[in-house]
Write a protein that binds this DNA or RNA. Structure first.
Length: 378
DNA sequence: TAGTGCGGGCGCC
DNA sequence: GGCGCCCGCACTA
């Protein structure tokens, strides 16, 4: 696989004129193409044996980002960063939401966090969660390789994911945020209720317990600030998908990334703002009805029902056996918003390109939708 | 608390 | 030697 330096150099010279040949490199080559005319749009869901050359200005590439749950793997080569896929967390009961969608959660990257995650329960049916390992590369996890060379970041994917797409990192973060916010909100509500009860019994306000802001704040029934941040910001903030979802048509190398790659949160958007844009990404329509494993998977796990039940199992999740009538009652949100059930297997090839393709299409719609769907939960 | 990158070390082929 | 994997550490958010 490893080519000689001479071969590589010759290849570079020849390939500089033809894009097709630009793909002749291998991440392990001593020398990689240096005269790249066009770089690729960042791919959020790289799959199969694809290669991409990104601009070193691309923030997503700089972060070695992937929406697959990839963990760092030591390949004892400091020049090439290698990551292997963790797969996807599914419900051990293989449950489905009322609209037929499966639960596909994002495996935690950190080993400890992942073990902890697996002790939790399915947000939909409270059943046990199960890690579905990736075996798409000869029985081993799909591996991604990143290598920085000059103005470019070379990416190579080896293997085709043999499992559904998990929720994206942003989706997972958003789910946690929402869960946190809701937990905080419900505890505040309980507190408020208790105060009101005391008040009604005594006719006086308890003095030892300061009145929660909730009582006087007009926002009392608004979601916590961080959550509202999601909602208010999200309609304006481009998402990762807005750039990564670009069709992979190449862009000119050296071209001003900021101007060409326009709406990408990765350029300068603070983390919190990026996070705030998640909801758009997770919404069904945002997927443009494509991608088999597209995120209709998403958060559904956490989506509406997920979010709802997340509250129930909160942090500790006692893993209560599924009640006769699973809590996954009618899901106010996302119901109908994700018309397409999860297909069983991902398509091989370039589906990743389409993966994010439609994300940016209807950001505003999605965010508004997210808002109106989520808000009733509060 | 979790994500990420790095590097030591081990076992397998 | 290449590869997969585990582990610990440091840094960051």
């Amino acid at each position: 696989m490893l080519k000689s330096a001479d071969d590589s150099v010759m290849e570079q010279e020849d390939s500089a004129s033809q894009h097709g040949e630009m793909m002749s490199w291998d991440i392990n080559d001593i020398k990689l193409p240096q005269h790249v005319r066009q770089t690729d749009w960042f791919q959020e869901w790289p799959d199969s044996y694809v290669k991409h050359i990104y601009s070193s200005e691309d923030k997503n590439a700089q972060r070695h980002h992937s929406s697959w749950a990839m963990r760092n793997t030591n390949n004892h080569n400091s020049r090439i960063l290698k990551k292997s896929c963790l797969g996807v967390v599914v419900c051990g009961n293989n449950c489905s939401t009322l609209d037929g969608r499966k639960i596909y959660l994002r495996p935690a990257i950190c080993d400890k966090a992942r073990q902890k995650q697996q002790r939790k329960c399915c947000p939909n049916c409270n059943g046990p969660l199960q890690l579905l390992s990736c075996r798409g590369h000869g029985g081993y996890p799909v591996t991604n390789f990143w290598r920085h060379e000059g103005q470019f970041i070379f990416f190579q994917c080896k293997g085709a994911h043999d499992h559904p797409r998990p929720e994206t990192k942003l989706e997972a973060e958003a789910r946690r945020s929402i869960q946190k916010a809701k937990t905080a909100f419900s505890s505040s509500s309980l507190r408020l209720k208790r105060i009101q009860e005391i008040e009604s019994l005594t006719g006086a306000m308890p003095t030892q317990e300061p009145l929660p802001l909730l009582l006087s704040n007009p926002d009392a029934h608004m979601p916590p600030a961080n959550f509202r941040g999601h909602l208010s910001k999200s309609s304006q903030e481009p998402t990762l998908s807005s750039s990564s979802g670009q069709l992979p048509f190449p862009r000119r190398a050296g071209e001003d990334v900021a101007s060409r790659e326009t709406p990408t949160w990765s350029q300068s958007t603070p983390r919190a703002q990026r996070l705030s844009s998640v909801p758009a990404h997770v919404l069904p329509m945002a997927e443009g009805g494509h991608g088999p494993f597209s995120s209709d998977v998403g958060p559904l796990g956490d989506g509406p029902c997920g979010t709802e039940s997340q509250l129930a199992y909160g942090g500790g999740c006692p893993c209560v056996p599924p009640p006769a009538a699973p809590q996954a009652g009618p899901c106010p949100m996302a119901r109908g918003a994700r018309p397409h059930p999860q297909p069983p297997l991902p398509p091989r090839g370039s589906e990743g390109h389409r993966g994010g393709g439609g994300h940016q299409v209807c950001l505003n719609y999605c965010n508004n939708d997210m808002f109106f769907n989520l808000y009733p939960l509060w």
